[in-house]
Amino acid sequence: MSKVLIIAGDFSETLEVFYPYERLREEGYEPVIAAPTQKRLQFVVHDFEPGYETFTEKLGHGWPADVALADVDPSEYVALVVPGGRAPEYLRNNPDVKRIVAHFFGADAPVAVTCHGPIILAKAGVLAGRTVSGFPEIAPDVEAGGGTYQNSEALVDGALVSARAWNDNGPWFREFIKVLREKAPLA
């Protein structure tokens, strides 16, 4: 079975982890969650509620990481998924995350990223010449990382497919599955 790596951590957005996880399973791919350590992760739910200028955050589901980032051999995976939430704030500084992201971009392999996930790509130095979507407030981070920000529910730039947040899961992953089927079809 073809494996797809999902980089997550504590306070990754629940819907941005589980939607890709289940869609990949539905397609016949094997999703594997990598985190700083192999432990049970705590995800969160971000919601937009009246009276607040930004999203609110509540505890979401817990889920075990399958593998520690340091133990990931990215050549064993056909694609990469980078969810958002608050986890990207600290994951972007992890040297193994940078190593893994660089591998997938160097191989021109399918990469799906959403919400705050693009700040990981910016820190990994892979956005030069790329156009990416994400949560609108990260546009300066994308641009500082050499990329161009575009507000889109499903932006395809070669093998990179990005979106703003969990509200875009359907269009985002529809486009990613197209790229995945083309570049890493199941045998």
Rank of each mutant, 00 (worst) to 15 (best):
Tyr90Ala: 06
Ile33Phe: 01
Glu49Ala: 12
Pro83Gln: 08
Ile33Ala: 02
His103Met: 11
Pro36Glu: 15
Glu53Met: 14
Leu41Ser: 07
Glu57Met: 09
Pro83His: 08
Tyr90Cys: 08
Ala70Cys: 03
Pro50Leu: 13
Gly60Glu: 09
Tyr29Phe: 11
Tyr29Gly: 04
Lys39Trp: 01
Glu53Leu: 15
Pro83Ala: 08
Tyr77Arg: 09
Val44Thr: 07
Val97Phe: 09
Glu53Val: 12
Val32Pro: 03
Glu57Arg: 14
Arg40Lys: 15
Pro50Lys: 14
Glu89Asp: 13
Thr37Ala: 14
Pro36Ser: 11
Ala65Pro: 01
Phe43Tyr: 10
Ile33Trp: 01
Asp96Pro: 00
Glu49Ser: 06
Ala35Met: 10
Ala102Ile: 00
Asp71Arg: 02
Leu91Val: 11
Val78His: 05
Ala70Gly: 03
Leu69Cys: 05
Asn93Leu: 15
Phe48Gln: 13
Pro88Asn: 07
Pro74Trp: 04
Leu91Met: 13
Glu49Gln: 11
Glu49Pro: 00
Tyr77Phe: 15
Gln42Pro: 00
Val101Thr: 12
Leu59Gln: 12
Ile100Gln: 01
Ala34Gln: 06
Ala68Asp: 01
Ile33Asp: 02
Lys58Leu: 08
His61Met: 15
Asp96Gln: 07
Ile33Asn: 02
Val101Gln: 07
Val101Lys: 10
Gly84Thr: 04
Gly51Leu: 07
Val44Pro: 00
Phe48Ala: 14
Leu69His: 04
Gln42Lys: 15
Pro95Ala: 08
Asp47Phe: 10
Gly62Asn: 07
Ala68Ile: 02
Tyr77Glu: 01
Gln38Gly: 02
Leu80Tyr: 03
Thr54Cys: 09
Pro31Asp: 11
Pro88Ile: 04
Phe48Pro: 00
Ala70Leu: 04
Tyr52His: 14
Tyr90Gly: 02
Trp63Asp: 05
Arg40Thr: 14
Trp63Glu: 12
Ala102Cys: 06
Asp96Cys: 05
Pro95His: 02
Gly85Asn: 04
Lys39Gly: 02
Thr54Trp: 15
Tyr90Arg: 09
Gln42Phe: 04
Pro36Trp: 09
Ala87Glu: 05
Asp66Phe: 01
Trp63Pro: 00
Ala102Gln: 15
Glu30Asn: 10
Thr37Phe: 08
Val32Gln: 03
Glu57Cys: 12
Pro31Leu: 10
Arg99Cys: 03
Phe48Trp: 14
Val45Gly: 02
Tyr52Lys: 14
Gly84Ser: 06
Glu30His: 07
Val78Arg: 07
Thr37Gln: 13
Pro95Gln: 10
Ala34Tyr: 04
Ala87Gln: 06
Lys39Thr: 08
Tyr29His: 12
Asp71Ile: 03
Ala65Leu: 10
Val101Ala: 07
Phe55Ser: 14
Tyr29Ile: 12
Leu91Arg: 13
Lys58Asn: 10
Val67Leu: 15
Glu57Ala: 11
Val44Trp: 03
Ser75Trp: 09
Lys98His: 05
Ala68Asn: 03
Pro88Cys: 05
Glu76Trp: 06
Pro36Met: 10
